[in-house]
Design a protein around this nucleic acid. Structure first.
Lengths: 204, 204
DNA sequence: CAAAGAAATGAAATAAGATTCACAAAAGGG
DNA sequence: CCCTTTTGTGAATCTTATTTCATTTCTTTG
């Protein structure tokens, strides 16, 4: 037996991996997928492109992990807020503001959640991410409806509109939401959303 | 003088051009930019790739035109609705439903308005397109506020949310809207939008 | 129909980026 | 210190597009 990874080495490897992930996230946040070439990520992490492939089997898998980590973080924060104290109205406001604020800080990262990714594998990860975040808002809507704060409405449509939102609801109808709704219902739901959003009475 | 384009030839050329544009639009509508390679477009239009370059100097310019035409069409329809009869509430609902319905038919085309495009030139066209459509909704919001149907609110933020919407408002703050607003105002505006959208009272 | 110009073809050139690989450097163990 | 294994390098390769161009085919006109 001639080689066994020392703890020090173990740590250095883990550190490299972490640095690659961070570099990838930073580059996407800064300039989108466009700027996040394998070469750029490797360079930014202080490694050669070849070395990067020792840590990740492909660019796609690297970005799946980047997306996954970012979303896990996001879901944790939003989940805390959603499970917190206060009325559903207050919690919803807090969640939206929190989400929006973070999105504003790294617009391209938020963008990457929503926009067409370069790779089908990343696309799959994206759909999962959206569903997870959507679930948080869905819970809030259900709470609000149960407490009588919000009028009865489709929580699936509402959640999809809040995350994503409107836009994505149009682009990939019902993909992230569980139940299948008819096109009419979806269109009506979106219209209702917009009308309520501007303060108009939906019934009238 | 040995050659002059006959009317027939003239028409055939115009027809080819038209067919290229249609093929490009169809391919984007069907499967996004991904599927709309120059080769695919040319083939689908019944021409060689080389021939395509007689009609358009580059792929980017072709898609700028595709986008431009689609948006001109969209703006014309929405503009008619916005200038029509009825309350602002009715017209807004009609405009949103009309827009949504068409978007549902060609989800990827709608997507192309919003998603990160491959090319900076197309990106520029996209921003202009968004601004034009945003203006239609802005007018509607102004009308509704003037008539007392809608509460006073930022029409820039509201329009950005409706077109695009929420999503895009987060991703590229104030890019499409004229006036610059502070980050706080934008976040608050988005939160207000969502709260009203679910029927919660904003003031309370 | 023959000459001359215009349009179309599609294979080759180019570009840009991801991935591989032969080799070099470093680490671990005796 | 030398051998083995792992890790790192970066130029070469592969891949997937767009774009060009020498050649062919079609149109027009005398």
């Amino acid at each position: 037996m001639a080689y066994k990874r020392s703890t020090l080495m173990q740590e250095r490897l883990a550190d490299n991996r972490e640095r690659i992930l961070k570099a990838a996230r930073a580059l996407v946040a800064e300039g989108g997928f466009r700027q996040a070439s394998v070469t750029a990520v490797a360079q930014s992490a202080g490694l050669s492109t070849g070395a990067l492939y020792r840590y990740f089997p492909s660019k796609a898998e690297l970005f799946v992990e980047v997306l996954g980590a970012a979303v896990a973080h996001e879901v944790a924060i939003l989940g805390d807020i959603a499970r917190g104290d206060g009325s559903a109205t207050q919690r919803l406001r807090a969640a939206v503001e929190s989400f929006a604020r973070r999105a504003l800080q790294g617009p391209y990262l938020a963008y990457a959640f929503i926009a067409e990714p370069a790779d089908p594998e990343v696309e799959a990860a994206r759909l999962i991410a959206r569903a997870q975040i959507g679930d948080v808002f869905k819970k809030l809507l259900k709470d609000g409806i149960a407490s009588g704060e919000f009028p009865k409405q489709s929580v699936d449509i509402g959640a999809a509109c809040i995350v994503g939102a409107f836009t994505e609801a149009l682009v990939r109808p019902v993909a992230p939401t569980a139940k299948r709704v008819t096109e009419d219902k979806l269109v009506e739901g979106i219209a209702d959303f917009c009308l309520r959003a501007v303060g108009a009475r939906v019934g009238g």
